[in-house]
Design a protein around this nucleic acid. Sequence first.
DNA 1: GAACAATGTCAACTATATATGACAAAAAGA
DNA 2: TCTTTTTGTCATATATAGTTGACATTGTTC
Lengths: 66, 66
Amino acid sequence: MNRVREYRKQVGISQFALAEKVGVARQTINLIENDKYNPSLKLCISLAEELGTDLNTLFWKVDEES
Amino acid sequence: MNRVREYRKQVGISQFALAEKVGVARQTINLIENDKYNPSLKLCISLAEELGTDLNTLFWKVDEES
DNA sequence: GAACAATGTCAACTATATATGACAAAAAGA
DNA sequence: TCTTTTTGTCATATATAGTTGACATTGTTC
């Protein structure tokens, strides 16, 4: 799991708005949030920048604590 | 620019050896080191793990200091 | 300087990230 | 309740990440 949804909600925007900001389709954001695939590095970086955070925070070893 | 080459040399292995460890072709490593394309998140994570570092260190805002 | 390892690069192929359009269901607001 | 926004999901299409095989070049090491 990644923390895109969590940070998007914190910023208070919809999947559609985030998609526009980073220049992809809304469906792409939806699939990423639901871990349905494997985004490119560029997109990950855009997401981190748009959400005011960084790669590690969004994508590095974000298993929920067991 | 990313810091894959730098960390690979630090670990002391060839592009070929690193490619085998992360399960891609040698050319893929070569292209990434030379910024010829945009790897997937999964591959970035494998690289970071194999090189004993993390996403931010390898890929986050690694412009050479100006 | 011959032999070998490591790297850069090309062309052709396959797999998959991402786009587009559409529809239904859930959530939020009036 | 009705309306609108947001989210999940499907199917088809396109762009590009990643593969495979090959060859030339640049080190190393003997």
